[in-house]
Design a protein around this nucleic acid. Structure first.
Ligand SMILES: [Mn+2]
Ligand SMILES: [Mn+2]
Ligand SMILES: [Zn+2]
Ligand SMILES: [Zn+2]
Lengths: 150, 150
DNA sequence: CAATATATGCGATAGAGTTGCAATAAGCAG
DNA sequence: CTGCTTATTGCAACTCTATCGCATATATTG
């Protein structure tokens, strides 16, 4: 590993610790690494995937607790439920009530973020209701599975 | 119970059996009653609720199998996941790719169908993708919980 | 009504997620 | 840097949803 990349890793590590503390979370090694995984991959992650990607050893329960703490603090949010797995992601590509949609293939289970797909909602929720977030999941067939069905 | 309502129950029962057979499903007593519950309540139901509402005795596993069979046949569909519970409903108020949205309160977990809330999506999924259904879940606070937060 | 294929009951099992408790480590004052 | 305080972690047990294998029951068909 070069000096350069080592420096950028250090900087990144400090940035992540800062982000944790800004959100009222103690910057532990486990939390820093889990949060780093979200930044490095840029993809939605479930507890299972996180466990497999971790260099540092972390207990299952700790990862679940970290994901819950992050969600409560707003550092991540739950993107969608894939089968029985809860899948989380950074809320960076979401603004206010319009979160980006996700796609899920009903045949193979493949999922993807839909960055260019826009969803406009209109209507009233009723007196007293407050909308904070809008989750959209498009279900259908992915390219591989449409081929197979021909 | 009056003659009238008994007649209408009978008619309803025959209609439900017919609907099951039309969709390639054997019209068993268990299936008929579960499907009747969806029609009678008109509400989204989870396995737990169904178990509690059943007059007829049905095993847990059977209810799960019935819900899976109904979903595969398109008689019902999964509306959303409430915590760990899968919640199903009749697809009657959905047309093509535009299913009606649902609301979920992040504080108390209360959920509701949003009949008057319209969602228009635009954009392309990419070559080979086929969109079949669009699930929308609005998360926020219900009237009871907005009161409490004041 | 009998034959056949499917659905159900029952018990065991899988798997995601949570919890209690003792040990550990982060944050902070000195 | 050091020790104190408190939040976090590891571990194991546990909860709960959902699934599965297999023997039995039941719907459908002729
Ligand atoms: Mn996403
Ligand atoms: Mn609904
Ligand atoms: Zn696919
Ligand atoms: Zn509420």
């Amino acid at each position: 590993m070069s000096h350069q990349s080592q420096k950028s890793c250090m900087a990144s590590a400090r940035r992540i610790s800062g982000l944790l503390r800004e959100n009222g979370l103690r910057a532990t090694k486990g939390r820093a690494e889990v949060l780093a995984l979200f930044f490095e991959t840029g993809k939605p992650l479930a507890q299972r995937q996180i466990m497999e990607m971790l260099r540092l050893k972390l207990d299952r329960a700790s990862v679940y607790r970290i994901l819950n703490a992050f969600t409560a603090a707003g550092v991540i949010h739950m993107a969608y439920v894939d089968g029985r797995h809860r899948v989380y992601e950074l809320p960076d590509r979401c603004s206010g009530r319009s979160c980006h949609p996700h796609f899920s293939c009903r045949s193979c289970g493949m999922t993807a973020c839909l960055e260019d797909f826009k969803v406009h909602s209109q209507g009233t929720l009723g007196k007293g209701f407050v909308a904070e977030r809008q989750k959209v999941l498009i279900e259908g067939l992915c390219p591989d599975c449409t081929e197979g069905k021909k």
